[in-house]
């Protein structure tokens, strides 16, 4: 594989019909580029969890992706409530999700821990009342 790609997907809060479509598209792009399946799975899982966070909590957001020979970098920016304590949000099982989200199988407090587990680098910046930016990197030639 020797190529690069980048692009943006727009995400709409509470649009559960299309929730996951951006990550699905990203997965397809990585498959077409010939990235190794185990790397694709990690990227798709991290992107999907992050996308669901935007859909569940924010009004709207964007998923930017940058792929080159060395890494996959994904940045999600949202206009949402922000995260009061990133330290708490990183804890397995900690969740502020309402019941109807839990009934969909999400909101169990595993989103950010799953993203951390699937990626090589993770940065989360959040301002309460404004929004959250989440950035992760997966290196193509390194196993987690």
């Amino acid at each position: 594989m020797s190529n690069s790609a980048d692009g943006i997907f727009f995400l709409t809060g509470k649009d559960f019909t299309n929730a996951g479509a951006a990550s699905s598209n990203l997965k397809g792009i990585l498959e077409n580029m010939g990235v190794r399946p185990e790397i694709i799975r990690r990227a798709a899982i991290a992107a999907f969890e992050a996308e669901m966070n935007v859909i569940i909590y924010a009004v709207a957001g964007m998923m930017h992706y940058f792929i080159n020979d060395e890494m996959i970098k994904v940045i999600l920016q949202d206009m949402g409530p922000g995260i009061e304590s990133i330290e708490l949000a990183m804890k397995e099982g900690y969740s502020t999700a309402p019941d109807y989200i839990r009934e969909m199988g999400f909101g169990s407090g595993m989103g950010l821990p799953n993203i951390k587990k699937s990626t090589d680098e993770l940065k989360v910046n959040s301002i309460v009342g404004e929004g959250t930016t989440l950035e992760f990197i997966i290196y193509l030639n390194k196993t987690a």
Binding site: A19, G20, S24, P37
Partner: peptide, 17 residues
């Protein structure tokens, strides 16, 4: 194997192969 029948189950399945 699951009880859940919403669209997220399909998306999750796609992502998790």
């Amino acid at each position: 194997i699951t009880h859940l029948t919403n669209a997220q189950v399909i998306r999750t399945s796609e992502v998790a192969d």
